[in-house]
């Protein structure tokens, strides 16, 4: 992300640890079937997401927009067509029951937490730091790490190139012709020049890397030493504490009179 932002404590967490923790929370979120707990769990994730990424609130809200859409679409399909006994509303094939309403909202929240956790990771982790950490802590082989880093460098170049190719084709008159056939042709004509450039570029970079004595079998030193700090404890501590609190709160002071949403 190239948008301006403050670096704060979430950026300083060891990327491998962050990756593992968030993957664990992904799995954990799937195992939650208690609706009230899901609400409080979502809250505890969203506090970090909204207040701690260091990005301006305007951007955060913008990032959230597509995910609200995911929330609505996931929830709506389950709410409108799900099974249940206590009918709230029925019109044609639409059949909203109490059970399907809760289940839909539950699924929607789950999708939302997935999105927030994923973004939380992406917004606070630099790719280069992530791969250095993966090499140092999780013993990822350098050849994979460096190929990924080289590939990430290629993405902006490719986007720029795509725009240029589209312009170049416009000049040739690809888009000025009408009809389905020429539309198809114009879509078909983009990937070949783009891929042929990228493949050649990737090959050249690979040769250049080897010419600089990159060798996957050798030992290597690291420019960035990625270690652990007390922020890592804080990060894990936050989740342990907030999730326990979330659980206790949901059990003792339920918002809604349901427990398990599975039907």
């Amino acid at each position: 992300m190239n948008t301006a932002f403050k670096e704060n404590w979430l950026h300083k967490i060891n990327p491998s640890l962050k990756l593992l923790t968030i993957s664990f929370l992904f799995v954990f979120a799937i195992t939650i079937h208690h609706f009230n707990f899901m609400i409080t769990f979502t809250l505890s994730v969203s506090i970090l997401f909204i207040f701690c990424t260091g990005h301006p609130y305007k951007h955060i809200l913008l990032f959230l927009l597509p995910f609200l859409l995911i929330f609505l679409s996931t929830a709506a399909s389950m709410i409108l067509f799900g099974k249940g006994e206590t009918t709230l509303y029925k019109w044609g094939i639409l059949h909203i029951t109490e059970e399907s309403l809760y289940r839909g909202l539950h699924l929607g929240l789950r999708a939302l937490t997935f999105a927030m956790m994923g973004l939380l990771f992406a917004l606070t982790t630099k790719p280069v730091q992530l791969f250095y950490s993966l090499m140092q802590q999780l013993k990822l082989q350098p050849k994979y790490a460096y190929s990924f880093m080289a590939a990430i460098r290629l993405i902006p170049i490719m986007i720029e190139e795509l725009q240029t190719i589209r312009d170049a084709h416009k000049v040739r008159g690809v888009q000025t012709q009408k009809g389905m056939n020429s539309l198809l042709k114009s879509i078909k004509s983009l990937p070949i020049p783009l891929l042929s450039q990228s493949i050649r570029r990737a090959f050249r970079i690979a040769v250049a890397m080897e010419s600089k004595r990159f060798n996957s079998s050798n030992e290597r030193t690291f420019y960035y030493q990625v270690g652990f700090s007390h922020y890592d404890l804080l990060f894990i501590g936050y989740f342990i504490l907030s999730i326990s609190l979330a659980y206790l709160f949901a059990i003792n002071f339920p918002f809604f009179p349901v427990s398990d949403v599975r039907y």
Binding site: V128, M149, R153, I157, I205, A208, F214, Y223
Partner: peptide, 19 residues
């Protein structure tokens, strides 16, 4: 444009030093 594998100047030279 196709002889560097890292995004920043220092990292690119460091890549060689690491090797």
């Amino acid at each position: 444009d196709s002889q560097f594998c890292m995004p920043f100047v220092d990292e690119e030279i460091a890549f060689v030093l690491e090797n």
